[in-house]
């Protein structure tokens, strides 16, 4: 039996396939402009890989969760991330998920989500913010986080992404080097995450999920800001889809 978790976020779609107890495949693709189209591509790709989607249990999560017609159930990304991190780490932890359009802090206690907070309505502190800023600087996100490590510890104070962009442009105008501007950009995200972390009960461990978990420089800078070594896992970007697949396995 195959259990499939599909996490359609605002930027990327993540898919995890369990063959009974163990992970068989993980893959990701850009969400693009249509979640419905994305979910169709995912289905084709699964079937090309020899998986009978109609005979499998499918749970969809993320903002595009309602656009997966072959999903038996939709579950929010909060519960799925909790379940996924429980699988990857297996202990009490505070999860930081920096997504494309929101940042979530989730408390996992005894394998259950007991509290969560979301930074939304505003792009500040999200992946989208980072993407826009990287564009302004003419680099990709990986380059931006690496440059940030070398830069001076300056701050970008605007909470609004649009104003922050103006602030970055004025720093460019003043001749501030790109590394320091990058550092300022990362500081604005880690600072936002740090203040969200203080709004709820924090476990000893902090675990990062989402696409940024693959950026070592970012994890280093986030750890410095938060004051503990932020942990992650090579599959942490798939935490949501792993959780969804596990929850699919729990379906009757």
């Amino acid at each position: 039996m195959h259990y499939i978790g599909i996490d359609i976020g605002s930027t990327a779609a993540k898919v995890t396939v369990f063959d009974n107890e163990k992970i068989m495949d993980n893959f990701t693709l850009p969400t693009g402009w249509s979640s419905v189209e994305t979910s169709r591509i995912i289905k084709n790709r699964l079937e090309d890989g020899g998986i009978e989607v109609e005979k499998s249990k499918v749970v969809a999560t993320g903002y595009g969760r309602i656009s997966v017609p072959y999903a038996e159930k939709t579950i929010t990304e909060i519960s799925c991330h909790g379940e996924g991190v429980k699988y990857l780490l297996g202990e009490d932890v505070t999860i930081v998920d920096i997504g494309g359009q929101d940042t979530k802090i989730i408390t996992l206690e005894n394998g259950r989500v007991t509290d969560f907070i979301m930074n939304d309505k505003c792009a500040a502190g999200t992946g989208k913010f980072l993407e826009l800023m990287a564009n302004t600087l003419g680099v990709d996100i990986k380059e931006l986080t690496d440059m940030a490590l070398e830069g001076r510890d300056i701050s970008i104070t605007s909470m609004c992404t649009v104003f922050a962009e103006s602030e970055v442009i004025s720093l460019i105008g003043q001749g501030t080097d790109r590394s320091s501007i990058s550092r300022g950009i990362i500081n604005s995200i880690t600072g936002r995450v740090n203040s969200l972390l203080h709004k709820q009960v924090r476990k000893d461990k902090v675990f990062l999920t989402g696409g940024l978990c693959e950026m070592e420089s970012f994890i280093l800078l986030l750890s410095q800001k938060v004051g503990v070594k932020v942990e992650t896992h090579k599959l942490a970007r798939y935490a949501g889809s792993i959780g969804a697949a596990i929850l699919a396995g729990n379906l009757e």
Partner: peptide
Amino acid sequence: DSDTGQVKVRAEAFVETLKI
């Protein structure tokens, strides 16, 4: 209605934490 999607996610997630 600008944040209907986000409010829905929070409401559903909160209800999920009460159910599981």
